[in-house]
């Protein structure tokens, strides 16, 4: 049994330790906001934060998060997280929306490390998050909007 914190709450998993965290979060603990995209840590749809660091949950074994803090889109309620969620609506960012949980989780970590990110900062932080609808222009704009609100 592996114990960790998920969105601030104590949780435990009965899955084998090598099970990717993604499936524990989605199917065992039933937080469906985090998505499966490529399975090889290349698309970013499965991004969660482990102790505040954006991580691809599709390749991280659940054993690696024992006693750690995991944050998913559902728990992304820091001032930066809330500002981003609001900016995503005000800038009308999502199209199909499937990648957006991962985009928001990555963007929140960016805003915590850089309160006024430059275009290059945004490109670097967000390049690992594929948006297949290619809503990139609005993602960039919404991050800047949120940065001003925090």
């Amino acid at each position: 049994m592996i114990k960790f914190k998920l969105n601030g709450k104590d949780v435990q998993s009965d899955s084998e330790g090598e099970t990717p965290l993604l499936w524990v979060v989605r199917d065992e603990l039933n937080y469906k906001g985090t998505k499966f995209g490529c399975g090889i840590a290349q698309c970013g749809a499965c991004t969660v934060q482990i102790d505040g660091t954006p991580t691809r949950s599709c390749v991280i074994p659940v054993s690696a998060v024992a006693d750690k803090d995991v944050t998913t889109i559902e728990g992304l309620n820091s001032p930066a997280g809330l500002a981003l969620k609001q900016a995503w609506v005000s800038e009308q960012v999502p199209q199909c929306g499937y990648c957006q949980s991962g985009q928001l989780v990555s963007a929140e970590a960016l805003l915590r490390s850089k309160s006024a990110p430059t275009d290059d900062d945004i490109s670097r932080a967000m390049d690992g998050n594929l948006c297949r609808c290619m809503a990139y222009t609005r993602i960039r704009k919404a991050i800047k909007t949120a940065a001003q609100e925090v």
Partner: peptide
């Protein structure tokens, strides 16, 4: 106007087939 499906998609609450 704002699209009706966007708030849920900005909160991780939109439900897809995979869910």
């Amino acid at each position: 106007t704002k699209a009706l499906d966007i708030p849920a998609k900005s909160q991780g609450e939109a439900v897809y087939g995979i869910d």
